[in-house]
Design a protein around this nucleic acid. Structure first.
Lengths: 190, 190
DNA sequence: AAAGTGACCAAAAAACCAAAATGGTCAAAA
DNA sequence: TTTTGACCATTTTGGTTTTTTGGTCACTTT
């Protein structure tokens, strides 16, 4: 059945990308893993990159669903920003595929991978931006450029969760929460 | 005269590092540029890396002097943090050597360059940390982990000044100042 | 004697190239 | 009609030769 084969292919490719990365995953391998002739893959996907795109695309959808699930409308905005981003990144570090891709970008600089990670970042920022704009419209937070604010929020989180680990012991969730709270809630002034 | 030759070498090396980067700068070239025999370089510096270190070291000293010059003790702490970081980064983007090294790290990953940039980052963070600790001791800002706060401040600035430009028009100084003010002064709450 | 030099050397990097692997196609099979 | 894998053009890999480079040191200059 057509649907079945498609699913097999996507699953096999996901597994292989997660395990070996994008470049080290060959179409022959995916075909073998999916118990499918190589040609079959090309009846569903124009090429390797499009297969990759499909997988990342649904991953992004999962991430956004995660974030939405974290939001509780009755809590203050800053709490929700925090919960949502927190869960996004927990998801990120949990997900083999993301880990592998970030690693591959860092040490091999595979072009297709860089583009895809950029795309994921864009999606996250677009999502944040939309939430921030809504909050500004409701008067829940001060006026500010939503795009820049979203960008900065994401970068702050990545800095604390990922960049920090390059030279230090990882921060606990509590430490990250504490630092973010200072900047989100009070700022550095008294 | 010995001092003269030393200065010639440092100047020639600085010029070449700025123009071609670390790896693409050869000791022969430095010697020629400095109008000096290659052996002479090795009477002042143990090797290429030590010559590089000396240059970066005095560059860091210049940067710290810049920051100190920006601080006005009568202004509130957040203003001064802002002024100092602002000036540090203006200095950074102005300086050919930094630009070239960041570029070289990104596209060639030269080990010596990565180490040196890390070293520069460490120095900046140490400087910030010391200022923040003093401010906390004086009760000028809320209690917080000074190390993490310094790290995050630097990353925020780099995000706005440098990372943002990867995909957007550069932000004006005013825009950067505005966004930083929100996070330093008020946070995102009302 | 002290300071400076550039020919020289071992080691690292670049250039080269043949062999292997890979993405994608398509005539044949199911 | 759908699926397939042998096949092909192109890219990547691995190993070898050639060139370049950091660093030394016997010799020259001052």
């Amino acid at each position: 059945m057509a649907t079945d084969r498609r699913k097999m292919i996507v699953e096999a490719a996901t597994k292989s990308f997660s395990l070996f990365g994008y470049k080290a995953t060959t179409m022959d391998q995916v075909a073998k893993l999916a118990n499918v002739g190589k040609g079959t893959i090309y009846t569903f996907f124009k090429n390797k990159e499009e297969l990759f795109e499909e997988i990342i695309s649904s991953l992004v959808k999962e991430m956004i669903a995660e974030a939405d699930a974290a939001i509780q409308p009755d809590l203050p905005f800053t709490e929700n920003v925090h919960h949502a981003l927190y869960r996004l990144l927990a998801f990120r570090s949990q997900h083999q595929l993301m880990i592998k891709l970030v690693q591959e970008e860092a040490e091999m600089g595979t072009l297709a991978v860089s583009e895809m990670l950029q795309h994921v970042e864009d999606k996250i920022i677009a999502y944040l931006k939309q939430k921030i704009e809504a909050a500004i419209a409701k008067g829940a937070i001060p006026e500010a450029n939503a795009e820049i604010t979203s960008f900065l929020l994401l970068k702050m989180y990545i800095a604390l969760v990922s960049d920090w680990e390059r030279n230090h012991e990882p921060l606990s969730s509590e430490q990250i929460a504490e630092v973010m709270k200072v900047f989100l809630l009070k700022g550095l002034s008294l």
